[in-house]
């Protein structure tokens, strides 16, 4: 799965997230999502993750769970930045272990 395709879906999800929540989360790989310096509260992260999971399901026909034990055990949290999130999504889609 090409990374740019996943970036497109994540950015589309951020557009939806920004619109629904009247936020202005920047669409950049370096945007810090969650944790130190993060732009999202936990409930906002959940909202964004749900949007991304649904868009991946709709566009790529992959029914994935981004939040999992695997996600929690990564040395770098998938939820740190948009880049780490996209890389993690590519990993779980490629491994097909969801």
């Amino acid at each position: 799965m090409p990374l740019n395709e996943i970036y497109n879906i994540v950015y589309e999800s951020i557009d939806q997230f920004n619109e629904i929540n009247e936020r202005n989360l920047e669409k950049s790989p370096d945007t810090v999502l969650f944790g130190a310096g993060g732009h999202l509260e936990s409930i906002e992260l959940v909202t964004l993750i749900i949007e991304i999971e649904d868009n991946i399901d709709d566009q790529l026909d992959h029914c994935i769970s981004i939040v999992s034990e695997k996600a929690m055990s990564q040395s770098v949290s998938p939820f740190q930045t948009i880049e780490t999130l996209v890389n993690y999504i590519q990993l779980i889609i490629t491994e097909g272990d969801n």
Partner: peptide
């Protein structure tokens, strides 16, 4: 069965 449950919800959502 988590996968099966997620698929069911996916079909309802779609």
């Amino acid at each position: 069965d988590e996968k099966a449950v997620k698929k069911l919800f996916s079909s309802i959502r779609k």
